[in-house]
């Protein structure tokens, strides 16, 4: 088996890299693939929290590199899905604890047993970014329709294009707010795509469900009703090569749809 190594990066912090990693990874596993997620944000690990695995971590990637344990020992299995596991970052060390070569080696080893290796990249364009990108051949650039995030994404795209190992990259537009786009207060999906001239892999609407799902430590893709969850499942399908149409957010988040949802919710409660 030779898995695909996909790095999830953004440049700017707080645009949803880790949330995207957790959800895309979970969605890919739910679709029947063997997935391993690597958190490379040494010192600021959070992927374990989003997956609800923070209490199960015994060994980290630094322990693997420094040969205190075997690679397989450090992989933490997901609570629900046995196809999914996590290689956590060390919380007590900094970015220099792992080198590009070491990450490459880990990715090569994991490729043998897994279909997908998702690398959650730290923010910034320094060594942490270079390390995370080292083993990958594909990239997902997460951005939001905000100026600073788009500018940083452009920088990242420039850096990715300069890397020979990266064969392709696609854009994940996160935290899209259809109402603001409609009132022309926010850049539209088309605007961002045109400015960055990159292919899209997904459009994720701003969803308050993300906050609750993070608090519970359960990725939102597990909630099949949520719009963001469905959008993430679609991203996973596109990674698998399926052609899935983008969700029409304007329709889904219109007032009528919300009223319908509200009444549906009432009906369920009464039952």
């Amino acid at each position: 088996m030779s898995g695909r190594v996909i790095v999830i990066t953004s440049g700017k912090g707080g645009v949803g890299k880790t949330t995207a990693s957790a959800n895309i990874g979970t969605a890919l596993a739910k679709l029947g693939n063997k997935v391993v997620m690597i958190d490379t944000d040494l010192g600021l690990r959070n992927l374990d929290l989003l997956l609800g695995l923070e209490n199960r971590i015994v060994y980290t990637i630094v322990d693997v590199v420094e040969e205190r344990c075997k690679l397989k020992q450090a992989l933490v299995k997901d609570k629900k899905n046995p196809n999914l596991c996590l290689l956590a970052a060390a919380q007590t060390r900094d970015k220099s604890a792992v080198t590009e070569e070491q990450l490459k080696e880990i990715c090569e080893k994991l490729k043998e047993d897994y279909d997908y290796i998702l690398v959650d990249c730290p923010a910034g364009i320094e060594q942490g970014f270079q390390n995370a990108v080292a083993g990958a051949t594909e990239a997902i650039v997460v951005t939001t329709p905000e100026m600073s995030a788009v500018r940083d994404a452009d920088r990242i795209i420039g850096l990715l294009e300069a890397k020979e190992e990266i064969e392709s990259y696609r854009l994940l537009l996160n935290r899209v707010r259809p109402n603001l786009i409609k009132s022309k207060d926010m850049m539209s999906v088309e605007d961002v795509v045109e400015i960055l001239s990159a292919d899209l892999i997904g459009i994720i609407p701003e969803d308050t469900g993300i906050i609750t799902s993070t608090n519970k430590g359960e990725p939102i893709v597990n909630d099949e009703k949520s719009l963001a969850g469905r959008a993430y499942t679609n991203v996973a399908k596109r990674i698998l090569g399926e052609e899935v149409e983008f969700i029409n957010l304007e329709e889904e988040t219109s007032v009528v749809a919300k009223v319908k949802k509200f009444f549906k919710g009432l009906m369920v409660k009464e039952k």
Partner: peptide, 19 residues
Amino acid sequence: ESAKDVACNRLRVVLMQDR
């Protein structure tokens, strides 16, 4: 000008300088 148009125009200029 709508906020979105301002953002787009400013971004285009900035990105050209960056690139």
